[in-house]
Design a binder for these strands. Structure first.
Lengths: 206, 206
DNA sequence: AAATTAACATACGAGTTTGTTTGTATAATT
DNA sequence: AATTATACAAACAAACTCGTATGTTAATTT
């Protein structure tokens, strides 16, 4: 039975939402299209109508969260001319933790990303992550550089070292939280770490 | 054709070694027993003789590296009574990076662990990782506590915060290195970060 | 109103992979 | 020396899962 365009879009969203659930529970490679279909209340036929195959389905799912993620960090920091650049970076990172804490979809997608097998046909997903990663690195680097040049940062630091430590911290923090069943309060513990880290960024300055 | 006991043990090791290779290249779930068998120069029959199934094979592979990993950190730090506890922790972490850099087996196994699907039958592997993780946390915590009590550490830090930052840093550092194709010098860049981190641990002390 | 096409459901075929079973040569045992 | 257990290879059967092909209904188009 043919649906109206709006209804079709709805089932497409249902499929994506079901895929998010199933992929999160079973892992991408262990999940079957049949399970996703059932969870979405449709048959496999519907999925294959909307998506080429499992990999494509996963890529589309990834695309639903990657864009906002990229923009978030960039927008605030990239053209920051304020008098407290470090404070701004710290705030953006903190807010990112707040969002992660609340946004369950983001949690699931990131958890899926943390434990999926990039070796096979999912390789493009990893490449995409690398691009995002490099992009963030570049932005943070220039931001810390600016902070250094304006004397807002302890001169013993280099922009690269600061960028690395910040990214590694955020990465390790979120990995632990997501992989090990969110056994602590992400924003609370995370911000403690950030505060210490940025305090040492400033140190002799200001 | 029946082999001698030593020969049998050798093929068992060959299978484990082959599994390490294939799992690393294709990922655990995408790898087939046939591929592992071929790489080991045997048939699937041999694998099923030595191991119950794929999961069991992977668990055994995991066991070949987990023990040394646990001991490494523990042994040096746990009963440290020296006058520079922080320096000792930093050195242990640095040496861990050196080992990782050299030990290709460790690299492969950790890379496999970073991208395998714990959702299915591999769940016990994740639990095991959690245990190791908690163990390290406990040890680091008491070590930092000792450092604080003896005035070797900046009083603005708490043992928990220091432990978290150190673990998160190491985790993020290694994840990035392994997942993104080892695009930087692990010990060099890692030690830079460690030095800054520990410098901020000490800060007002000493 | 007829024709077309979108949005699925259903049925089918075909390839993989897994676990098991059977066969067998040889080492170990008695 | 005969027997038995071991260490596999080879063959087998069964289950999955995927992708596709075909069928069906209703929305759109003309």
């Amino acid at each position: 039975m043919r649906r109206t365009k709006a209804e079709a879009e709805e089932t497409r969203q249902n499929i994506l939402s079901a895929a998010e659930q199933i992929f999160f529970e079973k892992g991408v490679s262990n999940a079957t299209m049949e399970e996703v279909a059932t969870a979405a209340g449709v048959t496999r036929g519907a999925i294959y109508w909307h998506f080429a195959n499992k990999t494509d389905l996963f890529l589309e799912l990834y695309n639903t969260v990657k864009i906002p993620q990229e923009d978030m960090v960039a927008r605030d920091i990239e053209t920051d001319q304020s008098e407290d650049i470090l404070g701004d970076i710290e705030r953006v990172a903190s807010e990112w933790l707040d969002v992660m804490r609340i946004d369950e979809q983001r949690q699931r997608v990131f958890a899926i990303l943390l434990r999926c097998d990039y070796a096979g046909d999912l390789a493009p997903v990893l490449e995409r992550q690398q691009e995002v990663h490099d992009y963030h690195t570049k932005i943070l680097n220039t931001a810390f550089e600016r902070a250094l040049n304006r004397g807002q940062m302890d001169a013993r630091w280099t922009p690269q070292a600061a960028t690395n430590l910040l990214r590694w911290t955020m990465q390790g923090l979120c990995s632990e939280w997501l992989l090990f069943g969110r056994r602590f309060d992400l924003p609370v513990e995370g911000k403690k770490g950030l505060r210490q880290l940025f305090s040492s960024f400033r140190s002799a300055a200001g």
